[in-house]
Amino acid sequence: MSAEYKTVFASIDDYRKGGVHCLNEDPKRYVFSNLYEVAATNAPYDRIVVAKNLDYTIEAARAEGTSDWMVCAHDEFVVAMDYDVEVHFVKLADDSIVDEDKDGFVTLQGNPDGQKMGRILMTRGHQALLPEKTAYRFHSNKPATLMLQSILGEETIEKWADICLK
């Protein structure tokens, strides 16, 4: 009989952090946090940097309700880490409103002017492309965790001392 395995995932309402045991080391060097904890303890759609390599980022966000519309000069990616999340897309009528010299996402004021492109319905483990210069917003009926691959921008939030083990 073949063995049966249970894969252990986590969620915004059920996670168990690991940690760092040091012999002769500063635990802060490992910049240790947990995506689900960051999502659980921050406001909806605040995009908190949990990993940073020069200007590249991985961000965690709590999805809950409907986000503002966002746009970015470069591609980004989002992974639904636990529960159902929708992503809606709009092709901008005038994509010159996107500043090509600016990295990171930008929140748009109100609804974007452009054509609806459609939506993607995601659940745990699904990854979607957030194409460059395309407006997008998220919707989730209940709290969920997003992981985003992006670049540091003016609106990205860094709060390392609040989220990391010390």
Binding site: S2, F89, K116, M117, G118, L121, H126
Partner: peptide, 29 residues
């Protein structure tokens, strides 16, 4: 064998006419 319980569903992509093939997603896990 160790991931037999991992959901294999794919994201639902609902593209508006004219935008078929422009929205991309897959099941990463």
């Amino acid at each position: 064998r160790a991931f037999a319980d991992v959901d294999q569903s794919q994201p639902v992509i609902e593209a508006e006419p004219g935008f078929e093939g422009e929205l991309h997603a897959y099941n990463f896990f």
